[in-house]
Design a protein around this nucleic acid. Structure first.
Lengths: 150, 150
DNA sequence: TACATTTATGTCGCACACGATATAAATACA
DNA sequence: TGTATTTATATCGTGTGCGACATAAATGTA
């Protein structure tokens, strides 16, 4: 493998790292209006799609660890966006439920995807390319999730 | 714009966010051996390419703010990887310089890109696709950096 | 049934990121 | 020359991420 190929991982990993941070920044003005952060928005999206899920189900959907999600949910409970209750059948499980406030934010969040897409689509970037990028990232996510288990 | 297109930003932004974290995790075992973190590795790569650069130059290359980089460099100085000295010509500027230890890590870091590439390349992902993804991310980084200035 | 193991969640400590703000040096300009 | 502004860096507070570890409930098994 030649030097150019060797440098490739840096040339791809760093842009992913940078793009991730810049995207979070791009979301910020919209999320600020709602008083939430990007990870909190992700949790809400999970709950808007299906409410009353366990902490574990949230960690799996977001590919995060419980030591990240637990404090995150704690802050969201303080913001009165969600409630946390132990399951009756299995006392180990905590069920997360949207409050009325958390539910209402769904409407306020509606224009966010369109606004983001406007920023990210331009004359040099078309939809089919984006779809291809999405496929590739998901491929990597699968590989890296698998890789991380061992 | 239809609903599918609207959801696209979520379908791309979240994978970028996840991939970024998973990539950092993939680097971790190699960086652990060197006693550094991924952002510290990025700073070292900047310095290995050209030593004696200002804090500001590092923030620009890594697209990070000084309030992230300053503490990062402070920790790296404590690890004796770098030294920080005020410029004589302009006392506001802090020049960052590799120590012998920081320089020696360059050799130890050499196999990292190849190892990462081995993880990220498989039968479903080829080089040309990766190059295309890289171009696209850089396009977005440019857009989002510009977008963030206002 | 008693005890080891697994599962689900949580806490703690540390290292980022970043908005808001501070400080000192350099520069602009009245 | 004196003062306002800009520039470079740093500090503080808050919110993630995550490794290491803790705890309690459920499950497996001798």
């Amino acid at each position: 493998m030649d030097d150019k190929a060797l440098q490739l991982s840096n040339q791809v990993c760093f842009p992913i790292y940078s793009a991730s941070r810049l995207i979070t920044r791009a979301y910020k003005p919209y999320l600020d209006e709602m008083g939430i952060t990007y990870p909190q928005y992700l949790v809400l999206m999970v709950l808007w799609e299906s409410d009353n899920v366990s902490v574990n189900q949230i960690t799996q959907k977001l590919l995060l660890n419980t030591n990240t999600v637990s404090p995150l949910l704690k802050r969201m409970e303080k913001l009165e966006l969600i409630e946390r209750n132990r399951s009756i059948e299995d006392e180990r499980i905590v069920i997360v439920q949207l409050t009325e406030k958390g539910n209402l934010l769904k409407g306020q969040a509606k224009p966010i995807p369109e606004n983001l897409l406007k920023i990210m689509l331009n004359e040099n970037i078309n939809l089919s390319e984006i779809l291809q990028l999405k496929e590739m990232l998901n491929e990597w996510i699968e590989i890296l999730s698998e890789n991380n288990k061992n």
